[in-house]
Design a protein around this nucleic acid. Sequence first.
DNA 1: CTACACCGC
DNA 2: GGGCGGTGTAG
Length: 656
Amino acid sequence: MSSADPPSPEAVKTSRYTHRHLHLLRQGSTATPLRTIAHIDLDAFYAQCEMVRLGTPRDTPLAVVQWGSLIAVNYAARPSGITRMVSASEARSLCPNIVLQHVATFREGEGGRWAYRDGSARDVKTEKVSLDPYRAESRKILRTMESELQRWRTDESEGDLYRLTQGLSAGLEKASIDEVFIDLSPLVYCVLLRRYPELRVNALVEKRDEALPPPPTTALEWHPEECLIDLDTQESEEDNPDWDDLVMLTAGEIVRSVRKAVWDNLQYTCSAGIGRNKMIAKLGSACNKPNKQTLVRNRAVRSFLSSYKFTQIRMLGGKLGDQIKSYFGTDQVSDLLNVSLEQFRAKLDDHTATWLYGIIRGEDRSEVNPRTEIKSMLSAKSFRPSINSVEQAEKWLRIFAADIYGRLVQDGILETRRLPRVITLYHRVTVMRSRQLPIPGSSSIDEDTIFSLAQQLLQQVVADGQAWPCSNLSLSVSSFHDGITKNKAIEDFLVRGDQAKSLSHSSRPREPDSPDEQASGQKKQRVDNGGIKRFFNQQTSSEHMAVAGEGIPGQIESDPGHADSGPALPNTPEPPQDSLEIPHFFCERCSQSISEIEREEHDDWHFAKDLQMQDRQEARSSQPLPRPAASSKPSNPRGRGGRGRRRKAKCGWHSS
DNA sequence: CTACACCGC
DNA sequence: GGGCGGTGTAG
């Protein structure tokens, strides 16, 4: 080729994405267009649990029964027209060879022990359902998924990258007994940097806004079992792939291995959806069931969503969706795309209008909340006919107490000291009502203390009148001591990472002051550490706080023992071995070498630390400053709810 | 705190 | 569609 030849169009083409887009993946930022979320959903979960327990072959029709109704139907039974709507007897006539397995039950006088009983031994009047076997399987599946993800982290990360991932969370959110969301962004980031060395250049902060080099391939080989959503009509499969396609390819590989691990270890099949946010991922996982995974590429989002009724989108399946349907005379996403933001604002409150406008265009910044621990436990029973006396009610309270206590023990409550602080009794006469009491922290929690508190609550209900006839009774424990409550308070202290990034470094992110926030020096210290750590990692779970420890961003700690190692840290670690040739810079303030990848975060960390000092001085002089006007997208249609509201002292870290 | 909305099998 | 069980928000 002579020097006069113009470069071919292929050669000059660059990526639509920048180094900044790429590096934001590492922290699981909601702001990057390369973000990747998976939603994994077990197929007909309760039915699979029974198949595994009973050793039923995959092709044998099976349904799970609860007092004559089906609550789960496996895929082998569905061709016979069996759905959850039909009764057990109808199912039998539709498919004579179906296995109909009733759920396990507790029985009065048998304490917290549940059992599978045959039809003749079961009595809806004296027994209550136990879903414990399914919770146990759910836990096993979750652990298997976590461990497979951990394997990816250790296999794919080396040198700097290995250390960079260690502080980051698993990014796994338990969304229900059989569903998880996973933020794959940090993992995909590591895999891409390992596999495509050209991405490691230009990590320098000054170059962050430059476009990424084009991917070194003109055609992708998708895995044969991958289900791809068709591209939007104006897009073509012939176009060269960009990095978002490579991200998808990688995410598909990770999710396939997670699903395989679940199958190999536990014999459960699941379906997955992968896309740029939770909403897309969730819709995707339902596209090809059972035992398939669906990739929704960025260039497919528009046409993918246009084929849906908006009432199928998360949060729009209920009354809000109905309202929107009646306001605009349609239930189709495609019709709603013609409605302007102003028109939405005319009918809906501002937050909901903005959220809706974005969500039907495939925009959803809601975070994957790294949480696998349960937040409340409930044990319930419906009565037909209703019950009419304290004696009858107390029999059920004993079973509820035994049920809940058993579950507390299974969750390792005794070892972890993660104890519930609130107990609630729900009852329905014509309308549902509830009453709650604090659980005393002094005495140890056992079956009897739970029952006795429930009894107290029942007395209150009876004293109020309106207790009978009771058609539903349930008991719940919640507000776990070591749980999310503490961190909600911490979360209130600082703005989110994304919000902070949108602020100029000269402005000052902070929540409105409350008089009781000016705690003692020691208490304040704990707040600052937790808050600042969260500021960078965007984590909310206490689990993560516990493992991550405190350290200088950019310097991954090898010893979790030295908490609160700030810039004054005496033992500066060896310079990192640079297997990836990622450039480093020397921070004068901490006399340490910091990877360029983390430079921005590191600077932010100094910024936040400075703010902390400023805060202390202001606390002393009692001069509250106004909050900067920070804009942020609502993560749900109800808006920003609890943030910025005052927490009760007894639930926070400043309790005494 | 209480009630309600929304989601799952 | 009802029973059971979970999450989150408004006031």
